[in-house]
Design a protein around this nucleic acid. Structure first.
Length: 168
DNA sequence: TTTTGGCCAACTTATATACGGCTACGAG
DNA sequence: CTCGTAGCCGTATATAAGTTGGCCAAAA
């Protein structure tokens, strides 16, 4: 489906939009000030980012589609193929960790750790579809998973590796 | 030699995390 | 004027999207 994004921007008449093709070809929309960002493309595809709950995500999607159908920009029955592609989670280990020794424990082939470039250790577990950033104080960022269960599995895997290493 | 085509990578957004470097500002 | 601090930026991660520019190679 082709969309005239400039026309969509003016039709929607939202106070928080930005469209500057010389900078980026996507139309940025916010239904709520400071809320989730919707990036709309000429192809009719769109991305919603910046939600802190799934509820907020689905509400944003519903409100966006409702608004578009009210303006007859899209059919109310349009199949969007809406799916979550990436979730970002945080977690916390029980104790601080030495990232140099953790690099070896996790296996150098699946770790990137260059403290002068970035203070976090980057861990890509071979058997989990996620990437974990591990910090010396024990804080963790899990990203790249498409659902929370996968992120939790990856974190549990990390915890097991850390525990096994500490027992040695 | 010039032109054309194909391929790939950077661009932009959100978000947590943290460290070094830089700027700005206020106080002594 | 100088020193400290506060705030911000770039560093890195994932992911979708479409455009654009650069690079390389092959054809004219």
């Amino acid at each position: 489906m082709e969309l005239d994004v400039a026309e969509v921007e003016s039709d929607l008449d939202l106070p928080y939009t930005e469209y500057d093709p010389s900078n980026y070809h996507g139309l940025y929309l916010r239904l709520v000030e400071g809320g989730p960002l919707i990036t709309v493309y000429r192809s009719g595809k769109y991305i919603i980012s910046g939600c802190s709950t799934f509820e907020q995500l689905y509400e944003t999607n519903d409100a966006f589609l409702t608004t578009l159908s009210e303006l007859n920009i899209v059919d109310a029955e349009t199949e969007t193929g809406f799916t979550v592609q990436n979730v970002v989670c945080t977690a916390q280990l029980d104790d601080p960790v030495d990232l140099n020794t953790l690099s070896i424990a996790l296996g150098l082939e699946s770790v990137e750790y260059e403290p002068e470039q970035f203070p976090g250790l980057i861990y890509r577990p071979a058997d989990h579809p996620a990437v974990l950033l591990v910090f010396a104080n024990g804080k963790i960022v899990i990203t790249g998973a498409s659902d929370v269960d996968a992120a939790e599995d990856a974190f549990k895997h990390l915890q097991e590796q850390v525990t096994a290493y500490l027992e040695k």
